[in-house]
Design a protein around this nucleic acid. Structure first.
Lengths: 351, 351
DNA sequence: CGGTTTTCTCAAACCGCTTTGAGGCTGACG
DNA sequence: CGTCAGCCTCAAAGCGGTTTGAGAAAACCG
């Protein structure tokens, strides 16, 4: 493997000039630079990361923590982000190293990774309310970007979607179709996004003048069985009048809801409207559900390029508070939503 | 952050002595070593990885390629291995960096990663017959370990299970229960493990004197729908006499088979015996299937610690041909296998 | 044409650690 | 007491880059 010195002797230049030429410094002449670059590609020169890091203090490696549950499984959505992010970072000459963690202390794995003394920064995900990680990393002076929005106006770099709007848009659509009894199967309550969605849901329902009785906002793991179980409970009518529409946190949840409705002999959207938020995970096709699923659509994957770029900018000294993006999910109306069933226009009684 | 030099000046020693004391070299006296270690902990010394790497020529980072399919999804089993492997490597002071690839050239992504000049070695997985990767990496002098066994007696380090025995054990169990019409839903034919399993299956059937007509060895993606579709085809009886037992490549496939059998009103194990190979993926509980699934059991995860250790040993100069392990899957008999149904003991006609 | 900028290039220091080769000190032995 | 191991320690040379301060060459100026 060719080194700077190889190039410099080859060309009769000093290593300093070669280094500058390659790194785009202005002091080096155009002709010299061209010669150097030609020689570099010809000799197959690749900077040695360790040497670069030693000299600059930067490694070109960033980290991410995989949170494992007790059963050793990880969040399915994590891997979609992981793979895309890896590719986006690689395109920007950054490598991503993983670390897995099963513990309860949210910052300990970050601390351990920092001790390995390899990382330039972190990508965080799945923020929770009052997440301790940003404070910890800022105190250590470690750059990071957050996937997801924990609070209004954080002072760090993040990419998120407007989770209040996700539910508000869905409620607005359903209300315009005459629905009054709308229930929500939210994500796991401990995550910030779920908190935001519930707020958006309740606010939009209030705007429409609709009640949300206790028990018709549920939460749980983003799985088919969560949707099935919860929908069965609601639609059996034992908990009071059936909802005429159900909002689902994810498309697998919606699959469960659809199955429950089918099992109960309900037609869609005749008897029940279903709408879900769609993270656009690979291998799940809401458009091919039966009926085709109406969704708010915001591919998780879309966050990766912005996050990668933010992290690069941050590492290059950009002020993190400037590196913030909030996307809005798009509403895609398909066949799973329709007008409220005749005779079911009555809202729930306010408790 | 304290450096070696800080310690050396603090103690009036040279950096060389301090380095040796800390790294356990025999030339340094016990008293000196104790003093150095005390000072190191007192000053909070941490060796600078980059400097160590620059000096030793090793980075402490190994790589792995994630193969993405056209739909951007990755093999589910990959992530189970990935997380466990990451943890096992970290325990041995190695970091794992990923690279994603969607191309057709099997070695190109490895080449690209090598160009980044960051890696000490690779972990490969999912070998195919005549896999070109080992040859490529050996030619480059890059250490690697393989998860899975591509051939009899390769000359590189690998960890695998005896895939012939997986099917042979299953066939032997079923034959002992009187089954004669045994079908196989194998994994994707392009992988080496599937080839081995089919060989094991056919060999064991031959030993039992049982025929395997065309069409009763299928293959496909390791999914529930593969199992459902294939089982439906076989069990409907349109393709000839039903099999009385079905071997499945994975537990999700078995789930599909169970569903198909239920849909057709078949009882298990009364009308049909089912057995699967169980990779022990998190979140899948064959013991809780209905009926509880008989399996050959070999957690993919079990490969990770041996692989990590092999890679460490290899990096430390152990001859790779010595670093080979073949595990044997355990047979766990549960409720999905039983005696052949009365009147169904007749084998298929040899074609 | 001499003097001053500007432009380009270089040698050398440095990052923090490992490793080599040499030398000083100790004690045992003759 | 002189000598020779053996034990300990040291200075110094890398590892492969980046960065500084200075000098040489070229361009500009009056």
């Amino acid at each position: 493997m060719a080194t700077l010195k190889d190039i410099s002797t080859e060309l009769g230049l000093s290593v300093a000039t070669v280094s500058r030429a390659l790194n785009g410094f202005p002091e080096v002449g155009a002709r010299t630079r061209a010669r150097v670059q030609e020689a570099a590609t010809r000799l197959g020169y690749r900077p040695n990361r360790s040497a670069q890091r030693l000299a600059t203090g930067r490694s070109g490696v960033v980290g991410m923590i995989v949170k494992l549950r007790a059963d050793m499984s990880a969040d399915q959505t994590f891997f979609d982000v992981l793979t895309t992010l890896t590719a986006e970072l690689a395109a920007r000459d950054l490598d991503l190293v993983l670390s897995v963690d099963q513990g309860n202390d949210p910052v300990a794995p970050y601390e351990r990774m920092l001790e390995r003394d390899l990382l330039d920064g972190f990508v965080l995900n799945a923020p929770v309310p009052n997440d301790p990680r940003p404070g910890f990393l800022r105190a250590r002076g470690v750059p990071f970007v957050m996937h997801g929005q924990a609070h209004a106006a954080p002072d760090y770099a993040f990419f998120g979607i407007d989770n209040r709007a996700v539910c508000a848009d869905a409620v607005e659509l359903l209300a315009s179709l005459g629905h009054a009894r709308i229930a929500l199967i939210n994500g796991e309550a401990r995550f910030a996004f779920a908190e935001d969605r519930e707020q958006g849901f309740r606010a939009a329902m209030a705007v429409e003048g609709l009640a949300v009785p206790d028990g018709f906002v549920a939460g749980g793991a983003p799985t088919e069985s969560t949707g099935y179980t919860q929908a069965l409970a609601w639609l059996s009518g034992r908990a009071g009048p059936r909802p005429t529409a159900i909002l689902c946190a994810t498309t697998p949840v919606a699959q469960g809801v659809l199955r429950a409705a089918r099992d109960l002999g309900l037609s869609m959207p005749g008897d029940l409207s279903v709408i879900a938020h769609d993270d656009a995970l690979p291998g799940i096709r809401p458009a091919h559900f039966n009926p085709a699923l109406t969704v708010t659509h915001a591919p998780l994957r879309d966050a990766c390029a912005p996050l990668a770029q933010m992290l690069v900018d941050h590492l290059n000294g950009a002020p993190p508070a400037r590196l913030q993006t909030v996307n809005r999910a798009g509403l895609i109306v398909r066949a799973s939503t329709g007008p409220v069933p005749k005779g079911e226009e009555r809202p729930w009684q306010t408790p």
